[in-house]
Computed example of a mutant assay.
Amino acid sequence: MNFNNVTYERSFGTSEQLEPSTAPEIAFAGRSNVGKSSLLNKLFNRKGLAKVSQTPGKTATINFFDGSGVKFVDLPGYGYAKVSKTEKARWSELIEGYFNQEREFALVVSLIDIRHDPSDLDVNMVNFLREADLPFVVALTKADKLSRQQQMKQKAAIKRQLALDSDTLMVVTSSAKGDGMDELRGLIRDAVA
């Protein structure tokens, strides 16, 4: 799989618009300000493929990217306060509607900011993935903001807070420095193999 050849495909504003799943899908889920777009751009070695904004909550659609027979799915961020209740409800419907469909879920990458304790919404997402028996990994973002020692301490604390078993993989990542990208690419390759 060539991560450098990933291209933008389509965006959907409601779950009813989603086309049937025709290839393995790697979905990315996380809070609005977790750095999802930056991580995707670093993963694909592209600057502007996923739209990055200084304002959290800009991803308001489900965005599909094509990568040689694998679909990468950028889900709207959850938990951002400065949008209307109607818009929050639409985002929630989008995310739930996506996961409630018959799709080829190869892997869900659940993004959590390593600098903070997981929010209730992060915990709910991980619990949902576990209960739905979906294959997932946790990607801890923004690791460049902490020292190596702080990273290891936070990783252990987050693992406890999410009640993850020893089989659940966690990757410490930094979109700024590229940390964890090769490991994440390897996990994605394994998931679609």
Score class of each variant (00 low, 15 high):
Phe3Arg: 02
Val6Pro: 05
Thr7Arg: 07
Ser11Met: 11
Phe12Arg: 08
Gly13Asp: 15
Ser15Tyr: 15
Gln17Cys: 09
Pro20Trp: 12
Ala23Val: 03
Ile26Gly: 04
Ala27Glu: 11
Gly30Asp: 13
Gly35Arg: 00
Asn41Ile: 00
Phe44Ser: 01
Arg46Thr: 01
Val52Ser: 13
Ser53Lys: 04
Gln54Met: 09
Lys58Gln: 15
Ala60Leu: 15
Asp66Met: 09
Ser68Lys: 04
Gly69Leu: 02
Asp74Arg: 00
Leu75Asn: 09
Leu75Gln: 07
Pro76Asn: 10
Gly79Met: 05
Tyr80Ala: 01
Lys82Cys: 12
Val83Ile: 08
Lys85Val: 03
Glu87Asn: 15
Lys88Val: 04
Ala89Trp: 09
Ile95Thr: 07
Glu102Leu: 05
Glu102Tyr: 10
Glu104Ser: 12
Glu104Cys: 03
Val108Asp: 11
Leu111Ser: 03
Leu111His: 02
Leu111Lys: 00
Ile112Gly: 08
Asp113Ile: 01
Ile114Gln: 02
His116Gly: 13
His116Pro: 13
Pro118Ser: 11
Asn124Ala: 10
Asn124Gln: 10
Met125Lys: 01
Phe128Tyr: 12
Phe128Leu: 03
Leu129Trp: 05
Arg130Ser: 14
Glu131Asp: 15
Ala132Lys: 10
Pro135Lys: 03
Val138Ser: 08
Ala139Phe: 12
Thr141Lys: 08
Thr141Glu: 14
Lys145His: 06
Arg148Val: 03
Gln149Asn: 03
Gln150Pro: 01
Met152Arg: 07
Lys153Ile: 02
Lys155Phe: 06
Gln161Ala: 15
Asp165Ile: 00
Ser166Met: 13
Leu169Ala: 14
Ser174Tyr: 02
Ser175Cys: 05
Ala176Lys: 03
Lys177Trp: 05
Lys177Gly: 07
Gly178Thr: 01
Gly180Met: 09
Met181Asp: 12
Glu183Gly: 08
Leu184Glu: 09
Ala191His: 10
Val192Gln: 08
